[in-house]
């Protein structure tokens, strides 16, 4: 292992890791927002929107991110919708993740007993107040492990961004291998950088899940 070389390319990998982190976080936030809106549309049985949402969830969950990205990046410009690579990555991740987040939130909301909603309504709370103060807090606790699993899954999915010419970690490693045959060092840096991003997330997820599983409200 050539440490001098590694030191010389560290800034390059730092920049790439920052890109992965930045686009990943933006995509995940958008995905969570999409998921929340879709889950609300399903919960409130909003007529047409509910059907569209269901179709979207199936579409996003049954196609690979890479194919979604190719379609957005290479296909859509032909009908006049152009995106730069970074926006494309974020939109693609949000499209994919929105479906998974919808499922996470929807199952959380569904897991709250219907009679809990009724007991809030019987106290005179409006539907919105009931959702906000009674259903959502309980659903959030139930959805948290699935949500965290989605966050980790989506962060890992960013590793295909290089396909739409985003200069992320994969792109950088591939580049260095192709140009200078620095295979060992490049793979080492690649794994190291992903560990640095994913290990804390994964530990946080485990910690969170354990806390929620072994303790409910009030212990």
């Amino acid at each position: 292992m050539d440490w001098a070389y590694i030191e010389s390319v560290l800034p390059l990998y730092g920049k790439a890791a920052w890109l992965t982190l930045r686009t990943g976080t933006a995509g995940i936030l958008l995905a969570a927002l999409t998921g929340l809106l879709c889950a609300a549309a399903i919960h409130w049985r909003i007529p047409v929107l509910r059907k569209i949402t269901a179709a979207y969830v199936e579409l996003s969950r049954n196609t690979p991110l890479l194919v979604q990205l190719f379609f957005i990046y290479y296909g859509l410009p032909k009908i006049g919708i152009k995106t730069d690579p970074e926006a494309c990555g974020i939109i693609g991740l949000a499209f994919l993740g929105g479906g998974y987040m919808t499922e996470a939130f929807r199952s959380g909301v569904e897991a709250v007993d219907r009679i809990q909603e009724e007991s809030a309504l019987s106290l005179g709370l409006t539907r919105f107040q009931t959702f906000l103060h009674v259903i959502l807090p309980q659903a959030a606790a139930i959805s948290a492990p699935a949500f965290m699993a989605n966050v980790i899954f989506l962060m890992k999915e960013t590793s295909v961004f290089s396909a739409v010419s985003l200069m992320d970690l994969m792109f950088t490693a591939k580049d260095q291998i192709g140009l200078y045959y620095r295979t060992t060092e490049s793979l080492f840096l690649l794994v190291g950088a992903y560990l640095l991003i994913l290990l804390p997330l994964s530990l946080l997820g485990t910690f969170w899940e354990r806390r929620l599983r072994h303790a409910g409200f009030g212990t």
Binding site: I115, Q116, S119, S122, L123, G124, L125, A141, F217
Partner: peptide, 30 residues
């Protein structure tokens, strides 16, 4: 509904709120 009090077979307290918060929720919000 605020004028009709209802008590259910399985209590249906809100598990994410303390006893006091359970009682305060409706009068404060509605």
């Amino acid at each position: 509904r605020q004028k009709i009090g209802m008590v259910f077979q399985n209590y249906e307290l809100f598990p994410h709120l303390t006893v006091l918060e359970n009682i305060l929720l409706a009068p404060v919000k509605t």
